[in-house]
Nucleic acid binder design. Structure first.
Lengths: 132, 132
DNA sequence: TAACAGTATGTAATAATATAACATTTATAA
DNA sequence: TTATAAATGTTATATTATTACATACTGTTA
C-alpha cells in the first residue's frame, strides 16, 4: 500500500514546473522560474527537491545535476532508477524496463553488501543524433 | 591493443595521490594535498582529473563528486563502470563482475538509442554496517 | 481545544564544486 | 624544424549546495 504524499505549497510549485518541463531542470533554473511565485532562495528550492526525490516524485540525474519528473507511475520511491542520456542533444529519459530492473534489483555479489538502491545512467546517441 | 598514456607532470602527481588514497577523493581535497607540489589552482586539478577520467585511470563517483582510481586493470576507458556505496560508512568500491558488465554492455531497448557507455551506482549497507 | 511533535517555510550568509578566458610552454609528429 | 596538439599557469567568476537560526503551519492526541 502506497503512502499518498500531500505536497506542500513549495513542493507543489516546484514539482509542477519540473513535471511540465520537456527536459530535466537544474536547481537554479528552477529558482529563476519560481521567483514570481514567491520562492526566492536556493534553499527553498533544494528543500523541496530533496523531499520530492525522497518520495520518488522526481529523480536526480547525477551526471547532470538536474531533476526530472518520475515517468514511471509505479515508481513511488527512487530506489531503482535508470536513465538514457544522449551525449549529443542531451535528451534524457527514464528507462522503464522490467527485465533490467529485475536484474539489477536482484543483483548481488560476494562482497557481503546488501544493496537496497541503485542508479544507472546509460550514455550514447539517440536515434536522431545517430543519423546525422 | 591498448594505448599507453604517458601521464604529464600534473596528471601523475594527482593520479598517484588518488591511487594511494583509501577512499575516493574530492577535487578540493586533492588541491589541498598537492599545493606543496606546486599545483595551486582548482583548474589545474580539474584539467588533470578530466584527462585521467577520459583515459580510464580514474572514475568519478557522480553521486559523491569524488574520484577513485580504477581498480580494474582491464578497464582502460571509463565506459562501463559500476560501484558499490555503503550509505552508512561511505565505503566505496568498484564492482568487477563480468556477468553484470556483459549484461549492461549488451543492453538495448526499443528506444532507438545506441548505448556506448554506462555508469551504475549501487547503494546499501556493507557487511560491517549491516551487523551494527 | 490545548499542547505537542513533526514538517515546512523564510532569510541571510557562506561553503563547495566547477568553468571561462587568456597567455605561455612543452611534447609529438610530419 | 616547424607546425600542431596537449599541457600548464593565473586570475576571475560561475554554478551548485549547505549552515544556521527564527518562525509558521499541520496533524495527532491528551
Amino acid at each position: 500500500m502506497q503512502k499518498i504524499h500531500n505536497l506542500s505549497k513549495n513542493q507543489k510549485i516546484i514539482f509542477d514546473l519540473i513535471d511540465k518541463s520537456a527536459e530535466p531542470m537544474k536547481a537554479y533554473a528552477i529558482l529563476f522560474n519560481v521567483q514570481k511565485k514567491g520562492i526566492k532562495a536556493p534553499l527553498q528550492v533544494y528543500r523541496a527537491l530533496d523531499k520530492l526525490v525522497e518520495i520518488g516524485k522526481i529523480h536526480k540525474i547525477e551526471s547532470r545535476n538536474a531533476f526530472i519528473a518520475c515517468q514511471n507511475s509505479s515508481c513511488q520511491i527512487s530506489k531503482a532508477t535508470a536513465f538514457s542520456i544522449c551525449e549529443s542533444c542531451e535528451n534524457i529519459s527514464e528507462i522503464s524496463n522490467s527485465k533490467l530492473s529485475k536484474y539489477l534489483s536482484n543483483f548481488s555479489d560476494n562482497s557481503g553488501m546488501k544493496y537496497s538502491k541503485y542508479n544507472l545512467e546509460f550514455f550514447g546517441l539517440c536515434k536522431k543524433c545517430k543519423s546525422k
